[in-house]
Design a protein around this nucleic acid. Structure first.
Ligand code: FES
Ligand code: FES
Lengths: 145, 145
DNA sequence: ATAATAAAAGAGTTTCTTATCTTTATTTAA
DNA sequence: TTAAATAAAGATAAGAAACTCTTTTATTAT
């Protein structure tokens, strides 16, 4: 596995997909999202339900319904998505799995690891959901394959 | 979960434990290692068997047997341990789980993520198994709790 | 040789993650 | 007010990761 869980990878790709598809208004259905990011449809549905409950995407049922992101969502940091799915262990946990990462009872890797972990956290915090829309629309970046 | 799998966390803690216990000669048994790092004994046995096959620890059976690390092991980078257990996905994989992390078909996070991923790789490559022995012996760093 | 010791190997079980399929609730439009 | 569309929810299953228990093999010391 990579740095995030598979579920979290789907979540991030889906959020980016919804964001760039609906930035100009409208909604996008679960089928199109799953197809657009290459994920199992019903599994992704569960993930999006969860993100919807947490306010990271919006949704409406019925004809012309689907998922979308409003302006406030576009400005949220992507660390919100990661934290919603994988929790904050990746931002605060010990590299070696000690119950508590601490300065006073550190593991051997603590000092070096903390730097990198903080850098990752800073990066995900400084990066907003909406800031990739133009590159996605222009096709410079991809969410599939 | 943290950045590494639980199995990998055990592996790293165990390797550090064996290294600092046997740096001056001798062997240490699976029971003492499991107790020393707070891991399930039989599960850890499997992990160490695997590391042993790959030459990351040494072992001998029978009375006065156990696990140990020779001088050459102490100088290996800890990325070898991570790679043996978790594979190299963490060093080379796409943050969003695209099949192939690439410059020509990058995901939105590619540029920022690559930097951090490379920094992690560099750190784990520049850090040797044996370099924590003195801090572990003196009790400055810990492998349990 | 024999008995004791300790890792290696084998064979599960449990739990968590990922995935699939079906049914229900909500919304829209005719 | 009915039918169609679409997300939400429920139930179940497949696979992988984590953990446990038992048997075998290799080594040492007596
Ligand atoms: S104690 Fe291990 S990373 Fe902080
Ligand atoms: S393509 Fe996603 S990190 Fe490189």
């Amino acid at each position: 596995m990579g740095i995030f869980s598979k579920t979290c990878e789907y979540a991030l790709r889906a959020v980016f997909f919804v964001a760039h598809k609906t930035a100009g208004g409208g909604r996008v259905g679960i089928k199109e999202i799953a197809e657009g990011i290459g994920s199992p449809e019903h599994f992704l549905a569960k993930v999006l339900q969860d993100l919807s409950r947490r306010g990271i995407v919006q949704s409406v049922k019925g004809p012309n319904g689907g998922f979308y992101t409003d302006e406030s969502v576009l400005q949220r940091p992507i660390s919100d998505v990661v934290e919603a799915v994988d929790g904050n262990g990746i931002f605060t946990g010990c590299a070696l799995g000690l119950k508590q990462c601490s300065e006073i009872n550190p593991c051997p890797l603590h000092h070096e690891f903390k730097t990198i972990r903080n850098e990752l956290h800073r990066m995900l915090n400084a990066t907003s959901i909406g800031e990739f829309n133009t590159d996605l629309i222009s096709g410079i970046t991809a969410l599939k394959k």
